[in-house]
Nucleic acid binder design. Structure first.
Lengths: 100, 100
DNA sequence: GTACTATGTAACAATATGGTTACATACACA
DNA sequence: TGTGTATGTAACCATATTGTTACATAGTAC
């Protein structure tokens, strides 16, 4: 659940959104943000260490990809309590679908 | 999406789990954790300011409750990308249920 | 009013976070 | 081999976070 801390930062959340659309190399990611390249590099490291992304080396480039497991883990945490914030109609619906 | 930062801390996540089971007053919450009462009080403040919890005053007690909106917001963020980490079988299942 | 209870805040210290610039490393290619 | 390109790391700084203890505030109850 370390991934939650990784996603607490808005820049890192944006990086994840970009990578969910398509893999990208560090340089491309870097110039999408108004901070220095090393700053982005470190955000990538935090994401990497949390297991949220993985990098693949292609020549001098590092192509970053999303790793789904940690996102799944957060999703599973939410899942346990989802019924709490889902309103009754939605819950009924979910129940009926489970019955099908 | 400030709620994500609030939930980044493991103690606060535990507090949320406790409150999802049932509302509780500050003192009760405080002695569930191995840190001082003021430390818990401040965690509650962070959760309050992120809108994750709300407190109701009853005599000298503050009863804390979960506020569902911020959790819903995180859930919605996940929702946008859920299909990415859901395996194909699950996706097919979801699709068929939607058709029903 | 006084004493007790519950809780938030202030002040402080230690550590973590997120940014910067300068530097190191490694591959590509003429 | 030498030069340019891509990227991570080191050193540093400012600010935020999280804990502590001491104190303030507010309600209860005799």
């Amino acid at each position: 659940m370390n991934a939650m801390a990784a996603l607490a930062d808005p820049t890192r959340r944006e990086i994840v959104e970009v990578l969910l659309a398509a893999p990208a190399d560090a340089g491309t990611l870097a110039h999408m943000f108004p901070i220095s390249r090393p700053a982005v590099s470190r955000h990538l490291r935090v994401l990497r260490e949390a297991g949220v992304v993985r990098s693949e080396i292609v020549a001098q480039r590092r192509i970053y990809h999303i790793e789904s497991a940690p996102l799944k883990e957060i999703d599973a945490w939410m899942e346990r309590y989802r019924e709490f914030w889902t309103d009754r109609l939605d819950r009924l619906d979910a129940h009926l679908q489970k019955e099908t």
